[in-house]
């Protein structure tokens, strides 16, 4: 079962929830898909012994065949090609690897070569995995797709998604069995939760809500969820103890059996909802 943990904005506790869930379950795999800022390993402290490059295809021009006609530049929607004095310049760092220039070239002067844009790091058992986009690279999707290919060995795959509702998040969660939306009980949290709900509804994915930093049980979040008939799966309390440990890179499940039980229960609740 693949469970994606996401939130409308950053800082709501996505990593706390996903890493805690993975930590509490046997036979589980944690996959950090927040490839611009993966920080799951601050908490899970896996020894990253395996590395694998993420490659994309970039065009190169054979100057002998190129006539400088500019068809490739016309075809490129991303301005990644310039033609100056009949000479083609290709800018790899904004190339989307779509292949349009190669299709457009009338003389077959363009071929494609692989280029590294990111890296996937994991421990030897692959129970921990994260993708990291190289600095200055614009495309997150190839890293996400490669991570997705490696999510299958374990009973429970817990995915820490990037925040927001961008196309990166779409790629991360689209084939998940269940989505856990993490929010906090403030008007900000509610507003951003609605954005995340919009997204999972568009993708027709089953979902439930985890309220992080919960104080009372009757805040606008709970009221909203009740009205909309949305499952509140779990509440993590607003506590200075949790916050203090978080600031040191320690998850609640790493020092408290109570929280560990809560996360095991969370999985049971999800299973109940999806069965």
């Amino acid at each position: 079962m693949k469970i994606a943990v996401l939130s409308g904005k950053g800082g709501t506790g996505k990593t706390t929830v996903s890493a805690s869930l993975a930590y509490s379950l046997h036979n589980s795999q944690y996959v950090d898909c927040d490839v611009e800022e993966p920080n799951g390993n601050i908490f899970l402290k896996a020894s990253l012994t395996e590395k694998e490059a993420v490659m994309v295809l970039n065009p190169v021009v054979n100057d002998d065949l190129c006539t400088g006609c500019g068809a490739c530049q016309q075809a490129c929607q991303f301005n990644a090609i310039a033609v100056i004095n009949k000479k083609v310049m290709i800018f790899d760092n904004i190339c989307h690897s779509c292949g349009a220039c190669k299709i457009a070239c009338p003389t077959g002067a363009i071929s494609e070569v692989p280029r590294e844009v990111g890296i996937i790091e994991s421990n030897s058992s692959h129970t921990f995995m994260h993708g990291k986009l190289n600095l200055n690279e614009p495309l997150t999707i190839p890293v996400i797709l490669q991570l997705r290919k490696k999510m299958n060995k374990y009973n429970h795959v817990i995915i820490d998604s990037a925040p927001g509702a961008s196309c990166t998040v779409v790629s991360t969660i689209e084939d998940c069995d269940y989505c856990v939306l993490v929010t906090e009980p403030t008007p900000f949290g509610l507003h951003d939760l609605k954005i995340a709900i919009d997204l999972v509804k568009q993708l027709k994915l089953p979902f439930g809500v985890v309220v992080n930093k919960a104080m009372d049980s009757d805040t606008s979040i709970q009221v909203f969820c009740k009205e909309q008939n949305i499952d509140v799966l779990m509440e993590l309390p607003y506590s200075k103890e949790i916050a203090k440990n978080y600031s040191k890179g320690i998850l609640p499940v790493q020092y408290s059996n109570h929280y560990k039980d809560e996360f095991i229960k969370l999985l049971a609740t999800i299973k109940e909802r999806t069965s």
């Binding site: 991303f78 301005n79 990644a80 310039a82 033609v83 100056i84 800018f91 904004i94 614009p138």
Partner: peptide, 18 residues
């Protein structure tokens, strides 16, 4: 025209100057 391009504004603008 490149001012509001999603990416490659500098490349486009450079070509305009040329």
């Amino acid at each position: 025209k490149a001012a509001m391009e999603a990416g490659g504004a500098g490349i486009q603008a450079g070509q305009t100057i040329i």
